[in-house]
Design a protein around this nucleic acid. Structure first.
Lengths: 125, 125
DNA sequence: CTTGCCTCTGACATGGATGTGAGGTTCTAG
DNA sequence: CTAGAACCTCACATCCATGTCAGAGGCAAG
C-alpha cells in the first residue's frame, strides 16, 4: 500500500510516517518513481510505535528497541533487552505514579461532592 | 520562605516556579522590595501541580482545576468538577493503555529470553 | 563599604513530534 | 489528454515547559 493508505489505516498522519522513517523506525520499499510502499505488517508496526510514543519513549529510544523486536537475535538483544527492561521499569513507576494521581483526583472530587451536600470547612489535598 | 528554598524543597526549578505563578497556578506575597515569599503550604501545592503535569495535564487545564482544589465551593465546583471528572477518565484510559504497553514489552522480553535459551533460527551460536 | 549570593524582569533558546506550505512529479479516472 | 488526487523533498512554524543569559537590585556577613 502507499503512504496515504497506511496513514488512514493507522490514524497516523502522513507527515509522521515520513518522520518515523527518517528516525529509522520504519522502512519502505520505493517504487521506481520514488513513492513509498508498505506491506500489511507495517500497520501493526506503526501501531506499536505509537504505543511506545504514548508510553513516553523518544524516537531514539524506540529505535534502540525495535531491532530487538524485529529479530530476537543475540547481539541485538544483549543491549536492547537491557534497555527494554529499563524502559519497562520506568514505565511501571510512571504507572503507579499516575494511579496515585488518579486517587488524588478521586479524593478531591469526593471532597467537593461532600461539600456540595453539606458545606464545611475547605480541605486541600 | 523565598523562592530558592521552595525550589530546593520541591525539586522544582526557580524558573518553573515563576512560570507557575505566571500561569496562575501559584501565588506569592511580595516583600517590599519585590521578592516572592511563600508559606509552607505551597510546598504541597507545588508537588501536586507537578503530579498533574506528570499526568499530562497542561498548565491551562491545571489552572481550571485548582480553584476547585483551593475552595470547594459551588460556583467553581460546578464547572471544575466536571472538568476534573473528565481528566480523571482520560487519565484512567491512559493508565490502562500504558499497562497494555507494559504487557507488550513483557511479552517481547519473554520471547527474547526464550530465544536466547533455545535459538530456533540457526544464525550464530 | 564590599563581597557574594539570592532575587527580580525580560527575552531569547531548546527539544521533539507534528503541522503546513511551496514547488514539482506521479498516478488514476473521465 | 487532462484534471485532480496523491506523492515527493525541503524547510519553516508551532506548542509548552524549561533552560539560560543579561543587567539590575536586595541583603547578610566580614
Amino acid at each position: 500500500m502507499r503512504i496515504g493508505e497506511l496513514a488512514s489505516r493507522t490514524g497516523v498522519s502522513v507527515r509522521s510516517l515520513r518522520y518515523y522513517e527518517e528516525q529509522g523506525l520504519l522502512t519502505s520499499t520505493r517504487s521506481p518513481s520514488g513513492q513509498r510502499h508498505y506491506t500489511d505488517d507495517e500497520v501493526d508496526r506503526v501501531t506499536f510505535i505509537q504505543r511506545l510514543y504514548a508510553a513516553g519513549l523518544s524516537s531514539r529510544t524506540i529505535a534502540e528497541l525495535l531491532p530487538c523486536v524485529d529479530t530476537p537475535s543475540m547481539e541485538n538483544s544483549d543491549a536492547a533487552l537491557k534497555r527494554m527492561a529499563q524502559e519497562r521499569d520506568r514505565l511501571s513507576e510512571h504507572i503507579t505514579d499516575l494511579i496515585r494521581t488518579r486517587d488524588a483526583l478521586d479524593g478531591l472530587m469526593a471532597a467537593n461532592r461532600a461539600h456540595r451536600e453539606s458545606p464545611r470547612i475547605p480541605v486541600a489535598g
